[in-house]
């Protein structure tokens, strides 16, 4: 398990550095604009009032975007489940089936490694990769807060929305791992997980202005995502729920992996029960 964990981390180091530094740089510079934003509050409020509510719905509540929590939500955390979610679903779908489709798993699984060790070693590597990306970003945020005059958030409080964000992207990641065990190929699993994630984002965002969508949004993970408002305190039940479903998806994926035929070159793929044909007969 330790070998697979280390190997997964080694393979993810580029992603950790790339995503971590990019998001960190974004966060750091974003903090610098907070003071300016507060200074120009009245003109910005006027500007925001002119935007259609359908557009503003995607930024969360803008009523208090001049508070640190509101600002972090609108400028960063509202979009992050989708931005970092793209990494999570791509990495999640590749966690097992990437190597399987590349023929690497065929060799690795011929070694004395049991399936559970391989699965959980990789899953742990994936979980730590996500934590490392958010950890680097959090450190950059701490730097940004220190450089800002108007922001005064202790590092531990600043960690809260990152924990909340971690729970959501971990859930998207494990859902993608599960789909990769169910779908005929890694790319279909990633596509489906990505579609579910984006649809979830749209429905949750628009549910703030549409009552019909509210009922659907209750079943979506982003409903239980607090965004930047987690600064004011984490909702323990929601957090446990998000982590709980993330772990449930991981356990289901593991159970499927235990029973799985390791594929090579498309061997053992299931197919659609009908033929898709375009144009030619």
């Amino acid at each position: 398990m330790l070998t697979e964990f280390r190997n997964t981390l080694r393979r993810s180091r580029g992603a950790i550095i790339g995503w971590g530094l990019s998001l960190g740089a974004l966060g750091y510079f974003m903090m610098g604009f907070y003071d300016t934003l507060v200074e120009q509050r009245s003109s910005l409020e006027q500007l925001l009032a002119n935007y259609p509510p359908e557009f503003m719905a995607f930024f969360g509540s803008t009523e208090d975007m001049f508070s640190p929590a509101g600002y972090l939500s609108v400028e960063f955390f509202a979009l992050m489940p989708v931005v970092l979610g793209i990494f999570a679903v791509t990495a999640g779908s590749s966690l097992i089936t990437g190597d399987e489709e590349g023929g690497i798993l065929d060799l690795v699984m011929s070694y004395p490694v049991n399936r559970s060790s391989l699965f959980f070693g990789r899953l742990l590597g994936f979980a730590v990769t996500l934590a490392a990306i958010l950890g680097i970003t959090w450190l950059a945020f701490i730097g940004g807060v220190a450089a800002s005059e108007g922001m005064d958030i202790p590092p531990v409080e600043l960690m809260r929305p990152f924990i909340n964000l971690y729970a959501v992207i971990f859930l998207f990641g494990t859902a993608s791992v599960l789909l990769s065990m169910l779908m005929p190929s890694r790319s279909i699993a990633a596509m489906l997980a990505g579609m579910l994630m984006v649809a979830s984002y749209f429905i949750q965002s628009l549910s703030t202005i549409n009552d019909d969508l509210k009922r659907i949004a209750d079943f979506l993970p982003l409903k239980y995502y607090q965004s930047g408002y987690a600064l004011e305190g984490l909702n323990g039940d929601w957090l446990v729920g998000l982590f709980g479903f993330g772990l449930l998806f991981a356990v289901l994926a593991w159970a499927l992996f235990l029973r799985r035929d390791i594929r090579v070159s498309g061997e053992g793929n299931w197919r659609l029960p009908f033929r898709l044909s375009f144009g030619k007969k």
């Binding site: 590349g102 023929g103 690497i104 065929d106 011929s110 004395p112 090579v264």
Partner: peptide, 13 residues
């Protein structure tokens, strides 16, 4: 598997 050495038809890594 601890006792076996396996060479797949097409080695990938």
């Amino acid at each position: 598997r601890a006792k076996v050495g396996y060479l797949p038809g097409e080695l990938a890594f």
